[in-house]
Design a protein around this nucleic acid. Sequence first.
DNA 1: TCATCATAGTCAAGGAATTGAGTAGTCATA
DNA 2: TATGACTACTCAATTCCTTGACTATGATGA
Lengths: 191, 191
Amino acid sequence: MALRHAVLAALLDGEFSGYQLAKGFDIGVANFWHALPQQLYAELARLEGEGLLSGREIVQEGRPNKRVFQVTEDGFAELERFAAASAKPSFIRDDLLVKVQAVDDVDAAPVIAQLRERAAVAEAKAEVLGKLLRRLRGELDEDEFLRTGRRIGPYLTCRRGLAFERETREWCLWAAESLVRREDVECAGPT
Amino acid sequence: MALRHAVLAALLDGEFSGYQLAKGFDIGVANFWHALPQQLYAELARLEGEGLLSGREIVQEGRPNKRVFQVTEDGFAELERFAAASAKPSFIRDDLLVKVQAVDDVDAAPVIAQLRERAAVAEAKAEVLGKLLRRLRGELDEDEFLRTGRRIGPYLTCRRGLAFERETREWCLWAAESLVRREDVECAGPT
DNA sequence: TCATCATAGTCAAGGAATTGAGTAGTCATA
DNA sequence: TATGACTACTCAATTCCTTGACTATGATGA
């Protein structure tokens, strides 16, 4: 079991529907978990079946009704248990890194292009996270907020996400530059 | 298909057995992919069946024989295709981040302990990667190596891994400190 | 000498994730 | 007025990954 705890943690912010979670997983929670809508719907149904979440129908006008979920007593207990248990080491999986690993044996041009694209994506994500952080801490400065804010968990994880995206951007640009310089040399070498 | 390309990329360094890959996945390749031995053996068998790898038996004394694999022509072609195709966005999955997200609603003490443990692991990993980088570039300085080295792919990915581990360490210590300060305040508040 | 660790792998079961398609109503745009 | 985009969700098939156990041999240590 794995996604379940990420879903429970995401629902600590309030009530959300599967659709909202699927959207919201792009920011915030996406810093430490990633899931497709199908998975989320399935997991929400399972968690409700086990009594860790309770759902209720929200009737809407001008758009389809939705079911939103909140964490139950049992859900909190499950999170408590999870937080105290020893964590598995994290893992990254990144196609782009695999390509860079193999870059000496394949055409470098598309890899360079993808590195630059990824750098741009990381920059955009970093900006979104920066805004989210400012919103979370309100008028307080960071130190003050961390001392006195009611909920700092989401702030801490967003900070991790921001550092990660910045690091990603820097590395992508540096790696792309390093590869470009070699291509120049190859082409400009003595014939 | 996913693991297959990571395996192909890992085998560009030379011939390796499933067992060696399983060990080696802890460092180097682990910066962008993670897999259990069972998966590796299965994937190696599949890749050999498809002709992307060729394996041969190495007879050893004092220990069991082993089968090592190398990338075939078709394997290189597959990597070439993969490198040119558009990459999926990477993803992280980290139990510890989930716990931090939920930290305001659960007992913070075990989360703090896990953050410190993770920081220590990250530091150890960073040291291993630092040594690996020095070994890869030999006597050259980084800039010189990146310009003239034969294979820079593994160097670039290790550099990413190093940055990631350092960032992880810094963040874990910072987050743990932030949480500890709040616990102090809670306990020291006016009765 | 008995236990344990390291090398080198295999097998089976079950849970988790991805791929791909499909339903159904609302709204804006052309 | 039909085309596509957005909200909101569902289903099935397949592939992928994890869990846990199991077989051997040789070396190390108590």
